[in-house]
Simulated scan of single mutants.
Amino acid sequence: MTFLGNIIWFVLGGFISWISWMVVGVLWSITIVGLPIGIQCFKFAKMGAAPFGKEIRFSNSGVSLVINVIWMLLGGLIMATEEAIMGIIFCLTIVGIPFGLQHFKHAKLALMPFGAEIYRIK
């Protein structure tokens, strides 16, 4: 079921999430200083393409807090707003609720991507 959910997800909005993370990752990777942030964006682009069967674990370290604040000011709020709007649109229909919930999960990730770990649900 996760394979089918991921295919439907990608066609019905996951592509937008994936391409957004990829574009932001490329923009951050242009500079040497932003390269670690760009690499993290590419990891989350992979999750944006196929989120079903995966969960996110957030850490509470001080270093990730500083980087998350910088990220939030330089792109995170825009990414989170995009994901939240898409989540609201999907939740307007009963069939779209699982997809909307995935977008809300990505919105939280877009606000605090550093210190987050993606793991597979078995």
Rank of each mutant, 00 (worst) to 15 (best):
I32D: 05
R57A: 07
V66C: 12
K54A: 06
A110F: 00
P36Q: 06
G115S: 12
V69S: 10
F44V: 08
V33N: 15
T93F: 11
F114C: 08
N60R: 11
I118N: 13
F90E: 06
K108N: 15
L4H: 02
V26Q: 05
I78L: 12
V69T: 14
L101G: 03
G115L: 11
I118T: 12
K54Q: 09
I89E: 07
F99M: 13
C41W: 00
P36T: 07
G13C: 10
G38L: 02
G5M: 15
I88S: 07
P113E: 10
I88K: 09
K108Q: 10
F104A: 06
V63E: 01
A80M: 09
I89Q: 10
F44G: 03
R120S: 13
I78M: 08
S61H: 11
L92V: 12
G14D: 04
G62L: 08
F99K: 01
I56P: 11
I121G: 14
S20I: 01
K105Y: 00
I32R: 12
G100A: 03
N6D: 08
L92Y: 07
F3C: 14
L35F: 10
K46G: 13
F114D: 01
V11H: 01
V24G: 01
I16F: 03
G25I: 06
L92N: 03
V66I: 14
I39T: 09
P113I: 09
S59R: 04
M22F: 12
K105F: 00
Q102V: 04
I94K: 04
G14M: 05
L92A: 05
T81A: 13
K105P: 04
